[in-house]
Amino acid sequence: MAVLEVLNARKAFGENEVLKDISFSVDKGEVVAVIGPSGSGKSTLLRCCTILERLDAGCIRYSEDTLVETSADGSALYADKTTMKRIRRRFGLVFQSFNLFPHLSVMDNLTEAPIHVAGVDKEAAKKKAVELLAKMGLSDKANAYPFELSGGQQQRVAIARAMALDPEILFFDEPTSALDPELTGEILKVMRELAQEHMTMVVVTHEMSFARNVADRVIFMDKGVIVEQGDPRDVIDHPENERTKLFLQKISEK
C-alpha cells in the first residue's frame, strides 16, 4: 500500500516552473533516493510534500488522508486544519542544516513536540527519547546543548527528533551536504540501519553510493520532471536517458 502518493504535482515560483507534472508513489518500507542536478526541483518536491511549500496544482495523499487535490477549476485545494494536523504527524523531515532548537537540550529537542503537540505524557516522551538516543549512539548526550555537538551528532539528534512522533515516512533533504566529508559516514550508517528496519524513507541526496547500495528505487529529476526511475543499479550503472548519463558523468568526475 502506498504511504505517499503524488499525482501531477505542479509548482512555479513566478515564471519559473520548478515542478512540471510530477507523479510518483512510495510504498510502505520502501527507500527512495531522489537524485538530480541542483535546481532540478527535488528539494521543492520535498518541501511540498512536507507542507513547507504549496503546490499550484496536483494531488498529494498520505495513506487515506488527502493533503491536496486539484479542484474543478484546476487550482490546488488543501485539506482543512484538522486533517493537515493529522498529516503532519504522519511524516518527519530531516533538514540539510539540522535546525535543532539551540536553546533546548537534546532531550528537550526530542520531547518538545511529543509533549506539546501530540499530548504524550512527559515520562512516556522521555522514555521514547532515551530509546531513540540509544539507537543513534548518543545516550550520553541527552543533557547536552546542540552547540556542544559535532555536525554529525547534531544531525543524528535531528533524525531522532523527526522520529519522536513515530512517523510513517521520513524525508531527508540532503542530510549530509552540510557536513564535513569525514562525518557523512555516521549519518549514512544510521540511515542504512533505518532502511534495514524497513523505515519508509525518501532521501534527496548527492551520495551515489548510498543511492546505489541502500535505496530500493532511484528517481532522477531534471528541470522539474522525473526523467528516469527504477532499480538503483539500472538507473545509476546503466542509465537509459541522455540527461541521466550526463549528470552521472559529471558527478563521477568530482
Binding site: L52, F95, S97, N99, F101, H103, V117, L165
Partner: peptide, 30 residues
C-alpha cells in the same frame, strides 16, 4: 532567527502561537 527554526517547528506540528512562545521568543530574548 533563522527561517529554519520556524520550518522545523512547523514540520513538528507546532502552532504559530507555540512556535512564537516556545521556539522564537526565548531565542529573541537572548
Amino acid at each position: 532567527i533563522p527561517v529554519g527554526q520556524h520550518e522545523a517547528a512547523q514540520v513538528l506540528g507546532f502552532s504559530k502561537k507555540q512556535t512564537f512562545f516556545r521556539i522564537v521568543l526565548p531565542q529573541v530574548c537572548k
